[in-house]
Nucleic acid binder design. Sequence first.
DNA 1: CAAGTATATGAGTATATGCGCATGTTAAGT
DNA 2: ACTTAACATGCGCATATACTCATATACTTG
Lengths: 110, 110
Amino acid sequence: MARKSPLKDEALEHVARRFAVLAEPMRLRLLQALFAGEMNVNALVAATGGTQANISRHLQTLTHAHILSRRKEGLQVFYTIADPSIFKLCELVCGSLEKQFTKNADAFSR
Amino acid sequence: MARKSPLKDEALEHVARRFAVLAEPMRLRLLQALFAGEMNVNALVAATGGTQANISRHLQTLTHAHILSRRKEGLQVFYTIADPSIFKLCELVCGSLEKQFTKNADAFSR
DNA sequence: CAAGTATATGAGTATATGCGCATGTTAAGT
DNA sequence: ACTTAACATGCGCATATACTCATATACTTG
């Protein structure tokens, strides 16, 4: 993106897919929890307040997108953030949204 | 995100919404076209190959998300990228996906 | 005011996906 | 072998949203 030649359709769909994976509040909560480091499923269920089944599915989605990595240890499965670009992505979006809100706040307060 | 205290639910939904807006190939095509500068709807319809109705809807979505800005001039409406963070966002995702693919390529070629 | 052009929008349909419930699978302990 | 614990998954429902077609709106020109 932001290059000389436009991306091909297939590439665009990959990019869109990546954004779609990040477009769920529950998945963002999982990522937020994992920012502190590796966690197993039970801990993530507790941290996010979701049901075990639902969390498991979201973890699957994030793993298939290569955003998380899985490590099995006995009965437990530990997940970690595998793609460091996620940090910057979230920071960028948060920063942009903050600007928007402070702008709106300004508009109302004068 | 990536801060000391976790984001509130409402903030997470805003972040998720921002990602959702970017999770459509056609909208990414529109952004890609607009990277070169301001364009009116007809030009965008031609550049993306979509129908006028569909493009108009996507432009509305992007504008409501404060990613694009609208400027009316007579009969025509010109759109511009209003949020510069979009550039970096797309670059980050593209870079991350490229790494993934070259990694996979490596894995198969040895 | 009539006609034409550029864009937006209402309505309907099809598809995708998040969630809950129940059940399956894998591994540890007794 | 049986039980229990930790995860994963099949299925059905409900909702969201992308797309198309037709029509509405806004503006310009004759």
